[in-house]
């Protein structure tokens, strides 16, 4: 684990560099013929959306490993991934909503992607609430890990069912709801931002991991000291 502590600053600097490069590319990117300046929102929205799912995938992988091997470090990693994912999801929703206002004419549309994202956010919040509501650390870890798995199974069903609902029940009335095709000069900044956001996610994840691990160590230490004080008054 010592390697992670050494890696973290490196990751931070690389991310910063990529973000600056991405920002420069975005500022100089040509405007889209149809969507004008609003295309610049996509450079932030799409990487955030990818990361919100990627962090959930990471939490799922760690939870499976935890349930399988009962290794506490996997539980720490899973716990640390949740708030990071929630952060990305919140930005995805906010930027999607702000993008929707000029493009669709409304702040919100119940399409498959937005609905799944909203459910994902509630799921992240529920996971944090569940984690903090159970005092027994082993029980809380197990319950959260199982809940992560249930969510991982449910998310595709939600996406699929909302999509189905939209096509069978109310054909898209908003028009142009899909992500526009992006090519050439517009693609490079998107790729740079996607890589930069993977770095940002990794950095934030490492940061949360340090916090969660330190918090658990502190709790254990203070618990031990209390017992010690009780033994020798």
């Amino acid at each position: 684990m010592k390697r992670l502590a050494k890696l973290q600053p490196l990751l931070g600097w690389a991310t910063l560099l990529l973000l600056v490069a991405g920002g420069w590319l975005i500022a100089n990117a040509p405007m889209d013929f149809q969507q004008g300046n609003s295309v610049r929102i996509i450079y932030l929205h799409v990487p955030s959306a990818k990361m919100s799912l990627l962090m959930y995938l990471a939490a799922t992988a760690c939870s499976v490993m935890y349930l399988w091997k009962k290794n506490e470090s996997m539980d720490i990693l899973a716990e640390a991934a949740v708030p990071v994912g929630a952060l990305f999801t919140a930005v995805t929703l906010a930027s999607g909503s702000i993008w929707g206002k000029p493009m669709w004419g409304t702040w919100w549309a119940w399409d498959a992607r937005l609905t799944s994202m909203l459910v994902l956010l509630i799921l992240y919040v529920g996971l944090m609430a569940l984690r903090s509501a159970i005092d027994n650390p082993v029980k809380s870890a197990q319950a959260t890990a199982v809940m992560v798995l249930i969510g991982a199974v449910d998310l595709p069903i939600i996406h699929f069912s909302v999509q189905w609902w939209r096509t069978l029940h109310q054909p898209a009335s908003l028009g142009g709801g899909g992500t526009p095709r992006i090519e050439g000069a517009l693609l490079t900044p998107l790729l740079v931002m996607a890589v930069a956001f993977i770095g940002l996610g990794g950095y934030l994840w490492a940061l949360r991991t340090r916090t969660v691990a330190a918090q658990r160590q502190l709790d254990a230490l203070e618990h031990a000291e209390e017992d010690h004080d009780d033994a020798h008054p």
């Binding site: 569940l130 159970i134 939600i158």
Partner: peptide, 23 residues
């Protein structure tokens, strides 16, 4: 079973269950 022994379990149960029941 998952929220067994959790503080405020009824609210927690609703928070976890309702979004999953959307489909």
């Amino acid at each position: 079973a998952l929220t067994q022994g959790a503080r405020g379990r009824e609210t927690l149960l609703a928070l976890l269950l309702l979004p999953l029941a959307v489909p």
